[in-house]
Design a protein around this nucleic acid. Sequence first.
DNA 1: ATTTTGAGAACGAACGTTCGCTCTTTAAAA
DNA 2: TTTTAAAGAGCGAACGTTCGTTCTCAAAAT
Lengths: 225, 225
Amino acid sequence: MDFGSEHTSGHTQPVAAQPEKGVRAEKREAQITRILGAAHTCFVQSGFRGASMHDICREAEMSPGALYRYFPSKEALIEAIAERDRINDLRNMARMGEGPTLIDGFINSVMAHFKDHHARGMGPLFTEIRAESMRNETVAACCQKTEGEFIRLFHAFLSQAKADGHIDPVAEIDAIIPMMMALGEGMMLSDVIGKGVDPASIEKILRAMSESILRPKIAPPAKAG
Amino acid sequence: MDFGSEHTSGHTQPVAAQPEKGVRAEKREAQITRILGAAHTCFVQSGFRGASMHDICREAEMSPGALYRYFPSKEALIEAIAERDRINDLRNMARMGEGPTLIDGFINSVMAHFKDHHARGMGPLFTEIRAESMRNETVAACCQKTEGEFIRLFHAFLSQAKADGHIDPVAEIDAIIPMMMALGEGMMLSDVIGKGVDPASIEKILRAMSESILRPKIAPPAKAG
DNA sequence: ATTTTGAGAACGAACGTTCGCTCTTTAAAA
DNA sequence: TTTTAAAGAGCGAACGTTCGTTCTCAAAAT
């Protein structure tokens, strides 16, 4: 999918490359990025409630007065961070289906996602967001939105695979999806990779689990008994 | 099969009580129970950080001065609640191994646990505890302790099953355990049962997953003994 | 008489947020 | 080009509130 970037129709078309966006707006965006980065760091370290605005200001090397020109409240900051993280996860997972075989595409995208999640130390933030979503309406809505989008994606993927005869026609997709998602969320929550378990073993188990509930008809690449 | 599960009380207990048992000690215990109940309610509702001591006092119908005679700080209250919850989960799961067959015993205990977890609305608290454990040393230690105990239990269970020839001799137990635990934690986190998925379907998928990684041979009716 | 329990006002600290001010940038006016 | 007014960005002390906790004192229990 491609969401077109802003295009303003002007009277004259400048030949030379000129900054379409004002230098002012650029600086503003840079500051927002800076604040979000600082907030991310602090939230990972101390949690949404535990991190104070002063902490975030210190991390961003910025005074409260300055920060509040960009975000009207701590809530807004929390929501922005939560949304960014959830969307990032969704984007990572959206690559499922790209692979030599059905299961491979799925497993590869999942493994890549978990490795990225672990490498960037996102485990604590994920847990924090889910805890916050239990009682913060906006964060809950954000989680539900990305989750719903993921379910739709997953559903379309599995339906297509079923229609193509790649998976067991009687597989209960509507039960499989939440279970696979639970597995994924559990892996993010407990940071399985961070526990020192060999990624190859994880992949092997993940594959066995996936195949057991999907039972693809396409012959597995190797492992002939 | 029986794996002795023993629990030694942690160091995050309320103000030390006298070893002797009397009317006084009983009343004291009743008050502690009352406070823990109120704290549980408030923590589920607003989270550890979100719930204030005044909230808990109101819920327990007790003044701050009274409450502080039983718990020296909010931290102690959080830790007590976290420990209680974790130990309860551990106890629930310790029933694995009680069943007609290996997989049945496992699945039954897991399903019973999730149903109980859902029915008592413990999902938010579980998430909260895990989030807190990311940065609270004491809660982290508590989680690690019960988790370690569970791993030991699980490991003994699987090792015995493997030695008895009930599961694939090449099954990678040390990778299977964290993966199965991730699945379980994910199910608690996302409250699969609460999503309206048919428990029978959940059980079916859980069974398929378990069998796929354990590959049990046909379970013998009973062991000669 | 002594100890335990309880109530609830009060405390200091920390929080999210605001305010008043200065400095910088922008751009129109001169 | 220079001047000047307006707007934006930034600072950090300070505000009002809320928080966890303590203090004082009285009632109850032993």
